[in-house]
């Protein structure tokens, strides 16, 4: 069972709906007990960094996730804001410490293009044997909607996307996965990625 973490921020039901469609068992939850039982974790998220970190602490999920991911080695997939919460911190709220699974800090866009970066954009798959991108053609389009992003210079990146400059659109480090785009809203290939996560 995949535990979809419900911390009161955003689109957990969209992710649930996509997993249901794929016949992958999942549960939207904020219960520590259910999280402990789950074999995988999915951390969605729409909203502000500070509120999200505060909510994870208030529900005691923050420390539970650290144990589950770093000690039990359960696979975790962070989507959009969820991806960014797995970093050390974000320029969005300098004083909030993220889960620090990936050693980097999220940045605000500095290009001249319109911000937020919203819409469909094509990705460059750099790590061709990434289990999440199995059966995904290079340069497929995915749906993005964000104002902050991961740097390109992290070792864990698996894909990059170009909006003014290239930045990391997904990463992978052992059991830890992150996607800047929304697979649950990216039609066929988005669903394929969720299926790949379910099959891990």
């Amino acid at each position: 069972m995949i535990a979809i973490i419900d911390y009161g921020m955003g689109n957990s039901s969209s992710v649930k709906k996509a997993l249901d469609f794929l016949n992958i068992k999942s549960k939207i939850t904020s219960s520590i007990k259910t999280i402990k039982l789950a074999d995988k974790i999915l951390l969605p998220g729409v909203g502000a960094y500070t509120d999200a970190i505060d909510a994870l602490h208030n529900l005691n999920i923050f420390d539970e996730l650290k144990e589950k991911v770093l000690i039990n080695k359960s696979p975790i997939l962070g989507i959009c804001l969820g991806m960014q919460l797995l970093a050390n911190s974000s320029e969005e709220s300098e004083d909030k410490k993220g889960l620090s699974f990936i050693d980097t800090k999220c940045k605000k866009f500095t290009c001249d293009l319109k911000i937020p970066h919203v819409g469909w954009n094509d990705i460059d798959i750099l790590k061709t044997d990434s289990p999440l991108f199995k059966n995904i053609p290079n340069h497929s389009d995915f749906y993005f909607a964000h104002s902050y992003h991961f740097d390109t210079n992290i070792n864990e990146k698996t894909t990059v996307v170009d909006y003014g400059y290239k930045f990391t659109s997904s990463y992978e480090k052992d059991n830890i996965f992150g996607l800047q785009f929304h697979p649950e809203k990216s039609q066929k290939y988005g669903l394929e990625i969720l299926k790949n996560f379910g099959n891990l």
Partner: peptide, 26 residues
């Protein structure tokens, strides 16, 4: 919808937004 969905009309509070996001609006 397995595509991005925008919903509008009659929104009066942050809680309305929360509820719309919860049912699947992006």
């Amino acid at each position: 919808c397995f595509m991005p969905l925008t919903i509008g009309g009659g929104i009066k509070s942050l809680n309305d937004i929360n509820k719309l996001l919860a049912i699947g609006a992006d």
